[in-house]
């Protein structure tokens, strides 16, 4: 058997077992904080994987992905706000009551994130390269300022939730149950992405990354495919936002801030772009590093910055590439 392949399977297998058993391990170790930490890792991993779909596979370097995370979170926050307030969500053109049910709130949040991604993508994808980076950044910032200006929903201070969303039979307020929900969401999204990447659709998107002009001359209207890919990534980010809002029971404009988008890019590149497991490893590495370093110094960013430059200049393949001995999807 190919040694690289078996190592890959080993990494995946061990990782999955650890994740499945984590709440038990945490209980045995007597450190329930681990459950919270790893829930966060799973959520960020989900956001990073969705970003990798557009950056790693589609070659669309978006510096505004946190906007869609933020939108997902704000849908949860705003609906919760109206539930707590007892007010109607909308009174025109028809009376719309708010909801606290996972089965209503979450699909709505995902749908709204995806639609916003479609809208922003429709304009941004008219450009490429540097302009695309700057435009996605600018649109994300626009939504950030919009969130800040929403005085009703707390403006700068954001919204505090009284409780997590409600699911029949399962109590999401329980951190272990919530952890497993996060894990299931991530695994489902990974599986869907894996199918997607190797499907006809995925091929078109990957081809457009390598040579878009050539794809057009073969007969592919690449714009449409890239736009749909952008929206799918927006949906994934929206789901991550939903989970973030539920985990911390708090939503604020900082979720949409552009440094948040930057962090997601860091996770993707650190873990290994153009692979699906890479971003998961990247999210884990980044958050664990933050956890460890911040225990020693509050100024840990002063080390993180040069570290990133080092990674870019000398360790381009990312953790996953390094582990499995394969590179990122090369040109």
């Amino acid at each position: 058997m190919n040694p690289a392949l078996s190592l890959r399977k080993f990494v995946l297998g061990t990782g999955l077992v650890v994740l499945l058993l984590l709440p038990i391990l945490a209980t045995v170790a007597g450190d329930p904080y681990l459950i919270t930490l790893f829930s966060r890792i799973l959520i960020y991993a989900l956001a990073a994987v969705s970003l990798d779909l557009i950056i790693g596979y589609g070659g669309m370097v978006s510096l505004g992905h946190a906007a869609f995370v933020g939108i997902g979170a704000y849908v949860v926050g705003i609906l919760a706000f109206h539930m707590q307030d007892g007010s109607a969500l909308a009174s025109w053109p028809f009376e719309l009551q708010s909801s606290n049910a996972v089965l209503v709130v979450w699909p709505a949040a995902i749908l709204i994130s995806a639609s916003m991604a479609a809208l922003i993508g429709a304009v941004s994808l008219r450009t490429r390269g540097m302009q695309f980076i700057m435009i996605t950044l600018a649109f994300a910032q626009m939504l950030f300022y919009l969130a800040v200006s929403l005085e009703v929903y707390g403006g700068d201070d954001g919204i505090s939730l009284w409780s997590r969303n409600e699911l029949p039979l399962i109590d999401l307020g329980d951190d272990r149950a919530f952890y497993y929900i996060c894990l299931i969401c991530l695994l489902i999204f990974l599986y869907l992405s894996d199918r997607l990447v190797f499907s006809r659709f995925g091929r078109v998107v990957r081809g457009a990354k390598v040579n878009e002009l050539r794809m057009q001359s073969l007969g592919f209207p690449t714009y449409r495919y890239k736009l749909v890919c952008f929206s799918i990534a927006g949906a994934g980010a929206g789901l991550a936002g939903v989970l973030m809002a539920n985990q911390s029971e708090f939503v604020s404009p900082s979720l949409l801030h552009w440094t948040h988008s930057g962090e997601l890019i860091v996770m993707v590149l650190l873990g290994g772009m153009g692979t699906l497991i890479g971003p998961v490893l990247g999210a884990a590495a980044m958050l664990l590093m933050e956890e460890v370093l911040s225990a020693y110094t509050e100024h840990w960013m002063v080390f993180l910055g040069p570290f990133l430059i080092f990674v870019v200049l000398f360790a381009k393949r990312g953790i996953y590439g390094w582990l499995s001995g394969t590179g990122v999807e090369s040109e």
């Binding site: 199918r195 997607l196 499907s199 006809r200 091929r203 078109v204």
Partner: peptide, 24 residues
């Protein structure tokens, strides 16, 4: 087969691995 794919209807097919499609 990527070139073939461009001429076999749209490519909004998200599930089946393209490498296994005989018509491509």
């Amino acid at each position: 087969s990527l070139a073939v794919q461009a001429h076999k209807g749209h490519s909004f097919r998200f599930w089946r691995p393209a490498a296994q499609e005989p018509q491509l």
